[in-house]
Design a binder for these strands. Structure first.
Lengths: 196, 196
DNA sequence: GCTATTTTTTATCAATTGTTATAAAATAAT
DNA sequence: ATTATTTTATAACAATTGATAAAAAATAGC
């Protein structure tokens, strides 16, 4: 009973992700957040608590959505060489997209900057990295079982290698390096990740 | 003539770097800055201009100092294998050091987060990356001339590869992954960077 | 010892920060 | 229709934000 809520809690949370992603935790003001979420501050505070609490919920919501475009592209491609290429290519696309906000990855672009100031954010980032490593390694293992990769292929090491190369792309994109320039050594990196 | 300045401008600027490094551009308040720089705000504003101007000068000062510990370790080591190892090892050390502030790299930890909001910061970050790539590649070229690396060794691609792997370490360190855990595949990465 | 000049100090500015009372509005149960 | 309950809207809170005005203090030249 009582007056019904006239906004979608989940939609508001998704909007909050975008604000934090674009402006960072410190850079995002409550005014920015309430405007983008389409609610006023008392509603925000009653549903999400204070700024820090909202931020943590935003991270958890992002992680729960479990949609990392490069990882999805990696898993959707059947051929392992094409899959690795798709991972790097999709990483580049998202890192260099000009549209404001949602640049690169929410976890590495935003959450990584708050691990010192917002306690809970560190373990959430850690879990996301560990999960990504594991998913990539599992795919490599599957290829080994298929015979597409040799038994000696070090899945876990290569998984971490591929993941870490993405972080380099993200930094370079932020520095303004264009996608087509970074694409030039993309195939070369694919061959390194899969080298025997 | 006039009343003499009772603080060292350069020392104050170096202190400002530390504040931005530790707290980020948005997270660093003028109060934080004046306290750490040991001056009061009118002095700050008269010498450095506003916050954005101080920030740009801090970045330029950091770049001018030209001291990137991993890069220095890389160049000081004679043997190329040991040099690559030293680069990664030093990257890990600085990324994981527990002392507050000066974690990882000022450029990638702080400046990379302001490329959208502080216009001038982007090109400064770009120049730093381009310079680092070049320095690493030049060292590889020297090893090729010495015969320590084959003529076919792709210096520039490997330089960028090594540089980008560091970004992965920085992210992982922020997530709380320990140095000794990341050290486990350090030698493996050295062999990949130098593989023929 | 003045004067001119520059810096420091102290105090304060308006604006924005995150946050919360208070009261109006909208529903369900009685 | 009234009551109880919950959410909305409006307004305001104290604190902090980045930034200055005004006055005191310290030097060099005359």
């Amino acid at each position: 009973m009582g007056r019904p809520r006239n906004f979608d809690v989940d939609k508001a949370l998704l909007a909050a992700i975008n604000v934090f992603w674009e402006k960072g935790y410190d850079g995002a003001s409550m005014k920015d957040l309430t405007e983008e979420m389409g609610i006023n501050s008392p509603s925000l505070y009653s549903v999400f608590g204070d700024k820090k609490s909202l931020y943590i919920q935003a991270i958890k919501r992002y992680v729960a959505s479990d949609t990392c475009p490069p990882l999805d592209a990696f898993n959707e491609e059947e051929d392992i060489t094409k899959a690795v290429r798709a991972f790097l290519e999709t990483s580049l696309e998202h890192a260099t997209q000009q549209s404001i906000g949602r640049k690169g990855c929410f976890m590495s672009n935003c959450v990584s900057t708050t691990t010192a100031s917002v306690e809970e954010s560190q373990v959430l980032l850690l879990e996301a990295i560990v999960l990504a490593d594991k998913k990539i390694a599992q795919r490599f293992d599957k290829e080994k079982a298929k015979g597409a990769l040799p038994e000696t292929f070090p899945s876990f090491e290569r998984a971490k290698l591929m993941f870490d190369l993405r972080q380099g792309y993200v930094l370079r994109a932020r520095a303004g390096i264009r996608k087509d320039e970074m694409e030039r050594d993309l195939d070369y990196r694919v061959s390194i990740i899969l080298s025997l």
